[in-house]
């Protein structure tokens, strides 16, 4: 459903991604792994329309995304939960979630709100609380919940485990598994290699702005070069 071919993207003419190709198929979890600075966030920003690619193509359900704005891409059902959460700190938990359906699935807002509260009961206890006062883990849940409010077909999650305690990281991966179990396609962009490979069906390893390895998650996990060469572990 997501087809990226030879994507070149960067900032101010300096390329970060130098010809990336990858696919996410309907209903699967795909992990995109890479060390800091490998180009993971740039890849996400290009897919979701925050930056204009300098070359290559991005297709979603057979439709080229070139020239579409970030809200247009959300309207198609491709939703990006950004790194650093980017929630609205001055607004309540409920308002944050409501705005997730600003452009898409507005008619189902009430039902989806209940669905999100069922997945994240902790958010339900804090509906009126200002989002800026939530803990890091709760803010991450809120960011994912806001993404789910748009009834995405493909959810891109950028480093959902970043800055969370080990216990919360476990919980977060379990939640991602639960969300994907309903048939939602997930592109999980992570530094957390072991847990991501446990969860994903397939994975890509990004290194210096290009795909260095790709394959079934189980195969990659047993590959000794993965950890040492590409992820610097």
């Amino acid at each position: 459903m997501l087809e990226i071919r030879d994507l070149v993207a960067g900032y101010g003419g300096v390329p970060v991604l130098r010809g990336v190709s990858l696919d996410v198929r309907a209903g699967e979890i795909v992990a995109v792994l890479g060390a800091n600075g490998a180009g993971k966030t740039t890849l996400n920003r290009a897919i979701s329309g925050l930056i204009r690619p300098d070359g290559g193509s991005i297709g979603f359900e057979g439709r080229a995304l070139a020239g579409l704005s970030a809200p247009d891409i959300v309207a198609l059902g491709l939703v990006h939960v950004p790194e650093g959460r980017k929630i609205f700190p001055n607004m309540s938990v409920r308002e944050n979630l409501e705005l997730g359906s600003y452009r898409r699935a507005k008619a189902n807002r009430a039902a989806n709100l209940e669905r999100v509260f069922a997945i994240f009961p902790r958010l339900k206890e804090r509906t009126g609380q200002s989002a800026g006062t939530l803990s890091g883990g709760e803010q991450q849940m809120l960011a994912i919940g806001r993404g789910l409010m748009a009834e995405p077909k493909l959810l891109i999650m950028d480093e959902p485990s970043l800055g969370l305690s080990p216990l919360l990281v476990e919980e977060m991966f379990a939640l991602v598994a639960r969300i994907a179990a309903d048939g939602l396609a997930v592109m999980l962009v992570e530094q957390n290699v072991v847990q991501s490979l446990d969860l994903a069906a397939r994975a890509y390893v990004l290194e210096n702005g290009a795909i260095a390895m790709a394959g079934a998650a189980g195969t990659l996990k047993r590959d000794p070069t993965l950890m040492t060469t590409y992820l610097g572990l």
Binding site: S48, G49, L50, V74, P82, I87, L99
Partner: peptide, 8 residues
Amino acid sequence: TGAALSGI
């Protein structure tokens, strides 16, 4: 950024 990614 968060707003744009929410479809605003």
